[in-house]
Nucleic acid binder design. Structure first.
Lengths: 126, 126
DNA sequence: TAACTGTATTATTTTATTTAGTACAGTTAT
DNA sequence: ATAACTGTACTAAATAAAATAATACAGTTA
């Protein structure tokens, strides 16, 4: 299900959070779909269950999943845009920073437009 | 000169790298301009000189500054676009990931365009 | 010469991450 | 109801990363 780099400088639980977020965002995991259990994923990746749980806790905090004790962990339904306003602002800030860095290195306006259209297409394809 | 959060989860030296990159990218530090010495900045921020040096080494590795033993550290001149091609690709990848996340949260195409035009203006203003 | 520069090294402390082992309570299917 | 699942919590230990401390050396500059 995932490929993790155990000797990366970025913590395993963070890598997990990123990977799962990606699957949810790309629609490969749909609303209310069940995620692998903590123990199952722990076995599958040969990573300590505590590390998996830490990732799941983080995903729950960020609103990407919800967990029901005894039942399992599931993909959370999308929230209203207004509720995500702050998060969107932060993301736009990050994008701005990356754009500035990119332009400094010689990136073009068109490079961004291309990526944007690319993303819009992916989004429409769902 | 800087504001660092010593109790942030992100390492001090990384924060330093980001801050200085930002100053260079925004043009507040110009080519061949001298940076504060390792010891001066260490004193100023009350942070260990080794930590400062680690940040400077990282900035040098990334091509943002160059250092001359005995003289000081200076803002590196811009490199050719071709040389930065790989870096630009990575930045575009990151931007794409952020765009996907943003759209998932309800961000609009126009939000991006606005930021893009904003950045283009800043770039032209130099 | 004195006071600066960057750089290097070793040791120590502190903090973050990961693993290990165990436990408890709710759920599900046999 | 029993067995096998679920999430969650906790403590302890091991490992890795980050930061500090204390020196030292060689080049630069006034």
């Amino acid at each position: 299900m995932f490929e993790l780099d155990v000797r990366s400088r970025v913590p395993i639980y963070e890598q997990l959070v990123e990977k799962i977020k990606e699957l949810i965002i790309k629609g490969l995991l749909k609303e209310h779909e069940q995620l692998p259990s903590v123990r199952a994923l722990s076995n599958d990746l040969t990573i300590n269950p505590n590390t998996i749980q830490k990732a799941y806790r983080e995903l729950e905090n960020q609103g990407y999943i919800y967990s029901i004790p005894g039942k399992g962990s599931f993909v959370a339904p999308l929230k209203d845009k207004d509720i995500n306003k702050e998060k969107i602002e932060k993301i736009l800030e990050e994008i701005k920073k990356l754009m500035l860095e990119g332009f400094h290195l010689g990136m073009n306006r068109e490079d961004i437009i291309k990526v944007l259209e690319d993303v819009v297409k992916i989004k429409e394809g769902k």
